[in-house]
């Protein structure tokens, strides 16, 4: 059964005839060729597929493509454009720049989803503790980095975006 979807993806108007059962992540990857958004699981656990729907981070493996009709989708390919040019670093969103600077990625497979979650967090925060950053990444699994450099990457970006981050303290034992 086919349905028509009108949406904006990374600012571009899109109109497509699709199968009603198609998931957003496959719509992005297979129909639009936006392969930066990854599929890491089939139980909505890993977060590799995270994109923004009207500015909120969602797992695109858990959303039907038909549901984005008349809504706006942002993927990693369009992440840099979500901040004003003056805030970009070497053309990148501060979160992307942070991941590069702080070695927030190894194999890179979790990275787009991880960055979409982190960028949403920073867009909606004024101050954060390191533990709050860690907790905000609850829905994103990384098997490579051990997370520490991801936390540092997000803290790096926070600073560039005017979000203050409390420093980590070693447990007082």
């Amino acid at each position: 059964m086919g349905v028509t979807v009108h949406t904006r993806v990374n600012g571009q108007p899109i109109e497509r005839e699709i199968e009603a059962r198609q998931l957003l992540v496959y719509f992005l990857r297979d129909e639009l060729g936006l392969t930066g958004t990854h599929v890491g699981c089939d139980t909505s656990q890993c977060g590799a597929c995270t994109v923004w729907l009207d500015g909120r981070a969602v797992k695109s493996c858990t959303v039907l493509a038909a549901q984005v009709d008349e809504h706006e989708v942002t993927t990693v390919e369009g992440l840099a454009e979500t901040v004003p040019e003056a805030q970009r670093i070497e053309g990148l969103h501060p979160v992307q720049a942070g991941f590069w600077e702080k070695h927030g990625l190894q194999c890179g497979f979790c990275t787009p989803g991880m960055m979409m979650t982190a960028a949403e967090l920073l867009a909606n925060s004024e101050r954060l503790s390191q533990q709050e950053i860690r907790e905000a990444l609850e829905g994103n699994i990384c098997r490579c980095t051990g997370y520490q450099d991801i936390v540092d990457a997000v803290a790096f970006a926070a600073e560039k975006m005017g979000v203050s981050v409390e420093r980590d303290v070693t447990a007082s034992i």
Binding site: G36, G108, P112
Partner: peptide
Amino acid sequence: DPRLITGHG
């Protein structure tokens, strides 16, 4: 990293 953080892996 530049390709991986921009979705161009």
